[in-house]
Amino acid sequence: MGALQLDKVVHRHQVWRLFSCIWLHGGLVHLLANMFSLVFIGIRLEQDFGFVRIGFLYVLSGFGGSLLSSLFLQSSISVGASGALFGLLGAMLSELLTNWTIYANKFAATLTLIVIIIINLGAGFLPHMDNFAHIGGFFSGFFLGVVFLIRPQYKWVSQRNSYFGFVAPPVNSKHKRYQSVLWVISFILLCAGFITGTVLLLRGVDLNDHCSWCHYLSCIPTTKWSCKPQEDYCESTEMGNQLNMKCLSNGRSDTFSVSNSSPSQAEELCSRLCS
């Protein structure tokens, strides 16, 4: 259906799943929660910068979240727009910092936004939450916000909009120097991250092999829950080219047409039936 599944992305070259999983959800509650968050976060950004820029930022942030998720959670199937939503939060923060001089009450706004981000990232430490998608989406959105949401400095706008007879102070540059520096750095980091992540993913690299503690970023085990992925178990009987299979975890059963059934194919069908 388009969910993010590493095997199909890497071995079947279905790279489009890195994007399609953003539009899928794990139920009505999941969908409503994400859509409520999208309205709450996205309206202000869309009003200020237009739906084209924010839509582009939303999709690319979702891609960044899917990319990081695939590099760490390689045995999971992931759906949802949370990575893209965290990208909007990251973009709001970077837009505030990049255009710092034009805002009033900037410290209160920054503190409020940081608290919201920390609370939402903290919820990602619970089991069955894809916090790597949240983190990847957030940083993608942060750098995309610098690239796409940079505003011209106030004096330059005043000079362009000055009426006849009024002479505004001359300003040669549309943006302040620190804005230009941040734009260059963010663009380089963004391109490097997307390219490197995509290459590593298509090569089948598991970043957990290079970072022994990173799995704690997505789930912290406690006495109340375990972070180990739930394994799928199925009962199956094969009659000719028909494979009858029942998932023991959810009770679903189905019949599949197969030829020369292999253990890997049976495992994939079991995973699909139990998901």
Rank of each mutant, 00 (worst) to 15 (best):
F187N: 06
V205M: 10
I150K: 13
S162C: 12
A81I: 04
L73R: 12
L38G: 14
A3G: 06
V52T: 09
L96G: 07
L243Y: 14
V199D: 12
G137L: 11
V9R: 00
A3Q: 11
G197E: 01
F36T: 10
Q159W: 11
S94T: 00
F125P: 02
H215S: 15
F40P: 00
V15L: 13
T222I: 07
Y154Q: 14
E235L: 07
S218Y: 00
C211H: 11
N131K: 03
G80F: 08
C211G: 05
A168P: 01
G80A: 10
G251S: 10
L217D: 05
L189S: 05
I150W: 07
G124I: 00
Q230E: 12
E231T: 13
W100M: 04
G165D: 09
S140A: 15
S186L: 02
I135N: 04
I41N: 07
T101E: 11
A109V: 09
L68H: 06
F40T: 06
L4R: 08
W183D: 08
M92Y: 05
F148T: 03
S212Y: 00
S75T: 13
L190T: 03
F19Q: 05
G193C: 04
C21R: 08
M35A: 10
Q265P: 02
I77H: 07
H215P: 00
P152L: 11
T223H: 13
I43Y: 12
C270R: 05
G136P: 09
N34F: 08
T98G: 01
S37L: 14
V205Y: 05
T98N: 12
K155D: 13
S212N: 01
Q242G: 00
I54K: 06
R53D: 06
Q159V: 08
H134A: 15
S212C: 00
Q242H: 05
N161L: 15
L45S: 07
C191Y: 15
R177F: 14
N208C: 13
F51Y: 05
L38E: 09
G251E: 11
G2D: 04
V115A: 15
R272V: 10
Q230A: 08
N120K: 13
N260P: 08
V10S: 00
G197F: 01
S257A: 12
L68T: 07
H210S: 11
A33Q: 06
G42P: 12
L4H: 04
L217G: 08
L89T: 02
R252W: 10
I116W: 12
G27V: 06
D232W: 04
L60R: 09
L67F: 03
F36R: 03
K155E: 14
L96F: 07
L149V: 02
I220A: 03
R12V: 00
Y58K: 02
R252S: 12
N105Q: 13
W23P: 00
F132T: 03
L149D: 07
K224S: 14
F125I: 07
G193N: 04
F49D: 03
Y178R: 08
H210K: 10
Y58T: 03
M129E: 15
Y58G: 02
S212V: 00
R151M: 12
L88F: 01
F138K: 01
